[in-house]
Amino acid sequence: MPEPMQTKEPFRFHTRLHLSELTGLKASNLKQLLEIIKTAPGSSIYHHTHRFLQQHMYLSPEPPNDFAYWVTNVLGEKELGERLASIDTIEFLTIRDLRNKIADIIQGYLAANPSAGLRFAGEGEQFYFVKSVSFVIPTNYVAHNLREFADALNMITMDSIYFHIFEARLRLEKKTNDFSLWVETSLGDKELARSISRLDPYTRTLDNLRKTLIGLVTRHIKD
């Protein structure tokens, strides 16, 4: 078997651990929710659109965001809940854009359905805004070529995959995920970079995402 191509820069895998910080902000109805969404810290919008991904990493292939869940299950606004759950998060490159989209949907719904603004959450069922504090830590896994990269993908934690795929792209505003970025800029392999960035990670469990990534890379090595 030929030696795999060495990269200009090795890929250092990082992991990301998170702590939830309470903001003290809470909403009892749609109007309050909308106002707070417009002004809450970006880390809070990120938290409520990504929390489910990690808490239920093995279970649900379609993790809803917290806004959709609350609007549906507490306020009983199923149509709005469905619209919020259907936001194609992968299309957004910044938290700011994602926040605007969520706010636009709620604002539009309130304009078309003024009575929806009159529904209140019961005691203890309000929407509590939480934000994510992320701790990014380098791991001992380093890949100098695609084979080492595939091996490391098998070994790293879900948190590490999560960091390079979700957090790097949207929260650190790198426009694409870290894996595609490295494969393209360091290996010069645009085809594999594109295949990885084309994956929609929001409609898979993290477990499935890991397997799919490993499959893509190992097939590419064989070809």
């Binding site: 702590l19 701790f135 990014v136 650190l172």
Partner: peptide, 19 residues
């Protein structure tokens, strides 16, 4: 894990902390 992150957070103000 959460407690250790909490202890570390006391020494940082930012939302993304590089350790």
């Amino acid at each position: 894990k959460d407690y250790m992150l909490l202890f570390l957070a006391l020494y940082h103000e930012e939302d993304i902390i590089y350790l």
